[in-house]
Amino acid sequence: MGKVLIIGCGGVARVAIFKCCQNSEVFDEICIASRTKSKCDAVKAWLDGGKTKITTAQIDANDVDALIALINKEKPDVVLNLALPYQDLSIMEACLATKTDYVDTANYEPEDTAKYEYKWQWAYRERFEKAGITALLGSGFDPGVTGVFSAYALKHHFDEINYIDILDCNAGDHGYPFATNFNPEINIREVTANGSYWENGEWIETEPLEIERTYNFPEIGERKMYLLHHEEIESLALNIPGIKRIRFFMTFSESYLNHLRCLQNVGMTSIKPINYEGMEIVPLQFLKAVLPDPATLGPRTKGKTNIGCIFRGKKDGKEKTYYLYNVCDHEKCYQETGSQAVAYTTGVPAMIGTMMLMTGKWKKPGVHNIEEFDPDPFMEELNKWGLPWKESFNPELVD
């Protein structure tokens, strides 16, 4: 049916490419482009021979002119951005110049500031509308599926949703004293930033990891979780009517937190450049270089993830609670795709969101967050492509 240009070739991209090849009825052709072409070639060698044609290219995703030239050469129907969040705007500029639909999994973030906001990408709305192309923001799991879950809950179970708690539990064990399950630079910036939540029309800011709760996760059990700022709160607060409060919680092990606090105390998580023997280095980028590569964690990781949303609101004038979630097994994900569940839960929705644009089901010129579209076709595809969802009525609530 069409061609996708996938920019980036890490663990998430590996899953998304695998799933695109499985879904060959939609994806006739894939071009994989990354700064390191050898990574793309290795994935091509792994998956070549199926119905989907795979080509590779080298690209610097910060170079708008090079991106435009690549898109003009490959002529994809959709560009799927699985590069770093710092590169979102350069790829969006290239899509505008070539009038090509755009999908990503994480909002733009300035390289020199740990700031998770949609304002930079939302500023492109009018330009994308005039170009007649669609930008789908945040088609991962969180953000991504959590937004689809919210739209689905509103459509089928509520007249208005007043409270949303997004819970992200990774109970996987990789055996290392300290490692991150996705890009260490992005992960550590996210965790060490101030927390925040949306309540009564305004942001309430907290110290990093200040608010802690314990929750009994289905199929996993009790885990400590901590309130973080997360980008989907910003869009859901605008797009889901009746909202009074939205919070995001993520679980961390004591080992992870103890190591992180130590690294933070000695300055290794800083994003401010320092001079070391005449060279400018960013401590966090150096730390990333010495930590285990998340792409290597797959064969070591055991256990499950549970990511979902607890909704409270009203239906026919009565109070109602509803819990939508997915449970994913690290070992099963690795057996299927060679990646652990954290990459899997992002890569599968990235493919599905791209498919929604490719098939025209979600075609709408402009820049849109995922909850702005009809959730039903996406929810159907989650069950088909490896992320079946479960629901619970009257669930345990987070106090």
Rank of each mutant, 00 (worst) to 15 (best):
A57G: 05
L154S: 05
S150Q: 03
M250H: 08
T269S: 01
E202F: 10
K99E: 08
I17R: 00
E381W: 10
I68Y: 05
D316V: 01
F252K: 13
C9K: 00
Q340G: 02
I30D: 04
I233M: 14
G172R: 08
C40I: 06
V290K: 13
F182T: 13
T359Q: 15
K37G: 02
E336N: 03
V266W: 09
G353C: 11
V145L: 11
I68V: 15
D65P: 00
R14T: 02
V348I: 15
F27V: 02
N72E: 15
M268L: 15
L397V: 11
A179H: 03
V145Q: 01
N170T: 06
S34E: 14
Y344L: 08
I186C: 06
E254L: 05
A193F: 00
A16Q: 02
F217G: 06
I71T: 03
M379G: 04
N239Y: 14
C328F: 01
E372W: 09
D104L: 07
S34V: 06
Y325C: 09
C21H: 06
I204P: 06
A42W: 01
V266I: 15
K224S: 13
G308N: 10
A66L: 11
M279T: 08
K304R: 14
C328Y: 01
E277A: 10
L80A: 07
L357W: 12
I310L: 11
S90K: 05
N275V: 14
P349A: 10
I59R: 12
T52A: 04
L70M: 09
N239K: 12
Q264D: 14
K224W: 13
T56D: 12
D88L: 07
T98N: 01
Q121K: 05
S24D: 07
E232C: 04
I68S: 02
L238W: 08
F27E: 03
M279R: 15
A69Q: 13
T301D: 03
E319D: 14
K315I: 04
A341P: 03
T214E: 15
V145H: 03
E207G: 14
P143M: 08
C262S: 11
I68G: 02
E372Q: 13
V64C: 05
Q335H: 13
L357K: 12
S24V: 02
G138A: 12
G11K: 00
G147S: 12
G132Y: 09
K318Y: 08
P184R: 06
D316K: 09
D77W: 08
A13S: 02
E372Y: 07
A97T: 00
A131F: 06
E160N: 13
L357M: 10
H259N: 15
G49E: 06
N369Q: 11
P388F: 05
E219I: 12
D168F: 08
A97L: 04
N194L: 04
Y152I: 01
D173F: 10
D374S: 05
T100A: 01
R223A: 10
D60Y: 10
L238G: 12
P294Y: 04
M356A: 03
E111L: 02
W385S: 03
Y256S: 13
S235P: 04
S339H: 04
L387T: 13
E25F: 09
F378A: 07
I233W: 09
C95Y: 01
N265Y: 07
D48S: 15
L67N: 06
A151N: 00
E336Q: 12
K320G: 01
L70T: 05
L154D: 00
G313Y: 05
A151H: 00
